[in-house]
Deep mutational scan, measured.
Amino acid sequence: MSGNGNAAATAEENSPKMRVIRVGTRKSQLARIQTDSVVATLKASYPGLQFEIIAMSTTGDKILDTALSKIGEKSLFTKELEHALEKNEVDLVVHSLKDLPTVLPPGFTIGAICKRENPHDAVVFHPKFVGKTLETLPEKSVVGTSSLRRAAQLQRKFPHLEFRSIRGNLNTRLRKLDEQQEFSAIILATAGLQRMGWHNRVGQILHPEECMYAVGQGALGVEVRAKDQDILDLVGVLHDPETLLRCIAERAFLRHLEGGCSVPVAVHTAMKDGQLYLTGGVWSLDGSDSIQETMQATIHVPAQHEDGPEDDPQLVGITARNIPRGPQLAAQNLGISLANLLLSKGAKNILDVARQLNDAH
């Protein structure tokens, strides 16, 4: 009898209710805020589980004197976190989706994509230029951005401005803007500013005609071990179906173009009346040469937790077992079709030249 009692006690200790789920994140304040929001949602869904947040620095956090596009290494903000995932030191990792490459290392998958916040870019102005827009900034004003995508589009749109690289986390960039006289304004992701509670610093939100956004911008991705079915089931509740389908289309477009950090590629997606609209573009580094096109596809946005595919093969690095396969494939095909259209119009040449120029500098 006593033996059975011990077995029952052991089973209770090993039951999922007692389990601590370890969540990996970057150390920056924004990353911690984003991770806290994901953990809060998981806690609400699984009140019996405990969650421990483990923060670590990544290569991208450490190399702050070089433009991201020049470092010449993929997975700048993800490699150390993936290493911890691989060694079973954490069970899942919360990322900004735009930091996750469209091809993940073997053994990993994006197990959830959370509801997207505003994906557009924002302009934050130096205190002396508050009330201005990019259009009304004085001639030769210097605007800071760490992104080739932003610089290429904005140089084309605002030729009277000069664009220079600015690195560091959000706090560091804002301090550089406010305390030094080098920059009249800087460009940042609206979602990051909003998550930090800095709505009052948003001086201008850039519309798609001015600057399309990065693939996955404004959404959070939760990376897990691809074979860890328990954790895949656990994080599945975080999937937002519309965000998922938009981001599958965007990531398929980028992957098929073979774009990345070192080339200016941008997108804009919208879901309306059962249609998914995808606009994508590529630019030369100075913005003088560009190709942009829009395509659409009829896609039914499923309700969360309709029964999805059981075999769960990944699409552009994403596993969404609780979302039907048909809409996911339709979104992926839309991204591939748009990429093929741009490639047929000469996108590869623009991107190759951009890559060579970026590598040469």
Rank of each mutant, 00 (worst) to 15 (best):
V20P: 10
I21F: 09
R22Q: 10
G24R: 00
T25G: 05
K27V: 14
S28A: 07
Q29F: 06
Q29S: 12
L30A: 02
A31Y: 00
R32E: 07
R32V: 09
I33M: 08
I33H: 07
T35S: 09
T35D: 00
T35R: 01
D36R: 07
D36Y: 10
S37M: 14
S37E: 11
S37R: 11
V38E: 04
V39N: 08
T41I: 12
L42S: 02
L42H: 01
Y46H: 13
Y46P: 02
Q50I: 07
Q50T: 08
F51D: 07
E52Q: 07
E52Y: 11
I53T: 07
I54F: 13
S57T: 08
T58I: 04
T58K: 02
G60W: 05
D61W: 06
I63N: 14
L64C: 13
T66Q: 06
L68N: 06
K70L: 08
E73R: 11
S75T: 15
L76D: 12
L76M: 12
F77A: 04
T78Q: 09
T78Y: 06
K79W: 11
E80S: 09
E80N: 06
L81S: 03
E82H: 03
A84N: 07
L85S: 03
E86P: 01
E86V: 09
E86A: 13
K87C: 11
N88C: 13
E89H: 08
E89K: 10
L92H: 04
V93D: 07
V94I: 06
H95Q: 11
H95F: 11
L97P: 01
K98S: 03
D99Y: 02
L100T: 06
T102N: 11
T102K: 02
T102D: 05
T102L: 04
V103R: 11
L104K: 01
L104S: 10
P105V: 05
P106W: 11
P106D: 12
G107C: 12
G107R: 09
F108H: 01
F108S: 04
I110F: 06
I110C: 08
I110T: 05
G111M: 01
C114Q: 12
K115C: 08
R116S: 08
E117S: 06
N118G: 04
N118K: 09
P119S: 10
D121L: 03
V123Q: 03
V123R: 01
V123H: 03
V124E: 04
V124Y: 01
F125E: 07
H126R: 08
H126P: 11
K128D: 08
K128A: 11
F129A: 06
V130R: 14
L134F: 06
E135G: 09
E135N: 07
L137N: 04
P138Q: 14
P138R: 10
S141Y: 08
S141K: 08
T145K: 02
S146D: 04
R149A: 02
R150K: 02
R150L: 00
A151G: 12
Q153V: 06
L154D: 05
Q155P: 10
Q155L: 09
Q155K: 13
R156E: 11
R156I: 14
P159L: 09
H160P: 10
R164S: 11
R167F: 05
R167Y: 08
R167P: 04
N169Y: 08
L170E: 07
N171Q: 12
T172L: 11
R173A: 03
L174W: 06
R175T: 09
K176P: 01
K176R: 11
E179P: 06
Q180F: 03
Q180M: 10
Q180V: 09
Q181I: 07
S184N: 12
I187C: 06
I187S: 06
T190P: 04
T190Y: 07
T190H: 15
A191L: 01
G192E: 08
L193H: 03
Q194E: 06
G197L: 04
W198A: 13
W198C: 13
W198P: 06
H199T: 06
N200E: 07
Q204P: 10
Q204K: 08
L206E: 01
H207W: 14
H207K: 13
H207S: 14
E209H: 09
E209P: 15
M212T: 12
Y213D: 02
G216P: 00
Q217I: 03
G218A: 05
G218Y: 01
A219C: 02
A219P: 01
L220D: 04
V222T: 01
V224M: 15
A226T: 08
K227F: 03
K227N: 05
D228V: 04
D228K: 03
D228I: 02
Q229E: 13
D233G: 07
L234M: 06
V235W: 02
V237D: 00
D240W: 02
D240A: 08
D240C: 12
E242N: 01
L244E: 02
C247V: 09
I248Y: 01
E250M: 00
F253S: 03
H256A: 15
G259S: 11
G260A: 04
P264E: 05
P264K: 05
V267D: 00
V267Y: 00
V267S: 05
V267R: 00
A270N: 04
M271P: 02
D273H: 06
G274S: 01
L276S: 03
L278K: 01
T279M: 05
G281R: 08
V282E: 01
S288G: 13
D289Q: 15
S290R: 08
S290E: 15
I291W: 08
Q292F: 08
E293P: 01
T294N: 14
Q296L: 13
A297G: 10
T298P: 05
T298H: 08
T298F: 06
T298G: 03
T298L: 08
I299Y: 13
P302F: 04
P302C: 11
A303D: 15
A303Q: 02
Q304C: 13
E306I: 11
D307S: 08
D307F: 15
E310H: 15
D311E: 14
D312K: 00
L315Q: 03
L315N: 04
G317R: 04
A320S: 03
N322T: 08
N322C: 15
R325V: 04
P327C: 02
Q328R: 01
Q328K: 13
A331D: 07
Q332N: 08
G335T: 04
S337T: 14
L338S: 12
A339E: 02
N340Q: 15
L341G: 08
L343W: 15
S344G: 14
G346P: 00
G346K: 01
K348R: 15
L351K: 01
D352W: 09
D352G: 01
D352V: 08
V353T: 15
V353L: 09
V353A: 08
A354R: 15
A354E: 11
R355K: 05
Q356H: 14
Q356M: 00
N358I: 15
D359F: 08
D359W: 13
